[in-house]
Amino acid sequence: MFKQLLRFEIFYQLKQRAFPIFVILFLALGVFVGRQGFAPTGVDYNSVYQVYFHTSLFTLGSVFIIMFFAISAILRDKQHNMESLIYCSSIQKVHYFWSRFLGTFIFSVLAFTPFILGYTFGNYFSDLDAERIGDFQLLTYVQPWLYIVVPNLFICSAIIFSVCTLTKNSIATYVSAVFVYMLYFVCSLFLNSPILAQSVPASPEAMAFAAIVDPFGLAAFFEQTQYWTPFQKTHNYYRFPDFFME
């Protein structure tokens, strides 16, 4: 039963008109960012550090993708007056909600992933200094996708999907997405996060605390790479601290 529900959810979300719009939007955004050449002095434009930084930063916008798919997954039965038929059927509650959640999460990831593809195209098909564009390495783009995109979108999907499920209200779902987005910047302001242009560098204690409480992993990324040289930012792959690997 669960496989059938998940298969139906995938086909339903795939037919949503907003899905190709999100794909094109994030693909274009990735191309635009990749062509700008934002990178510290001495760091390659397509370095591991830069891919991590831009991928982490723009996952903040994924909450609005998730918001749409969550509303589509949960509220469509109510909008089409199908709730009474669904709830009195033999479908188990756990199968029903897990299939809807996984559909939301999977298509949110699929809609955001073109950002990384666009970023790659933007780096290599641009007027940027060729000496600061390194050789293509698949791991440079796969690792941020695994370490940043998938966990961030899973956490945001869980929060927004839960709000939508508990409230059955589209306005509350919109508010939860905006709240998650704004909460990050409010916390960054009070925690002196490196993502904000602070005139006073954050202390190691503040950086460590921000790394723990930041749900998007940006502060943790900055905390781990704050002492990297330009050479390391270009060639090193980001690794989790040892206590994550134990």
Rank of each mutant, 00 (worst) to 15 (best):
Q4D: 14
R7G: 12
F8N: 09
F8V: 02
F8K: 06
I10P: 02
Q13L: 11
F19Y: 06
P20M: 06
I21C: 08
V23H: 03
L25N: 02
L29R: 03
L29G: 14
G34D: 10
R35P: 08
R35L: 15
R35W: 15
Q36R: 14
G37S: 13
N46F: 03
S47W: 09
V48I: 13
V48E: 14
Y49P: 01
Y52T: 07
Y52I: 05
T55P: 02
S56T: 14
A70I: 08
Q79C: 01
H80E: 10
H80M: 09
N81R: 03
E83T: 06
L85T: 00
Y87H: 08
I91V: 13
Q92W: 00
Y96N: 07
W98H: 07
W98P: 02
S99Q: 03
L102K: 04
L102N: 11
S108T: 04
V109D: 00
L110S: 00
P114S: 07
F115Q: 07
I116V: 15
Y119Q: 14
Y119M: 15
T120C: 11
F121K: 05
N123G: 06
N123S: 06
R132P: 05
I133Q: 07
I133P: 05
F136D: 10
L139C: 05
L139W: 13
T140N: 14
V150F: 10
N152Y: 07
L153D: 03
F154N: 01
A158S: 10
I160N: 04
I160K: 00
F161E: 09
V163A: 10
T165G: 07
N169Y: 03
T173P: 15
V175R: 06
V175D: 06
V180Q: 05
V180M: 11
Y184I: 07
V186N: 04
C187S: 09
S193T: 00
P194K: 00
L196Y: 08
Q198A: 10
S199Q: 14
V200F: 01
V200D: 11
V200M: 10
A206D: 13
F209H: 02
I212P: 00
G217I: 04
G217W: 05
L218A: 13
A219I: 01
A220D: 06
F222L: 01
Y227M: 09
Y227Q: 09
F231E: 15
T234Q: 02
N236H: 12
Y238V: 03
M245R: 10
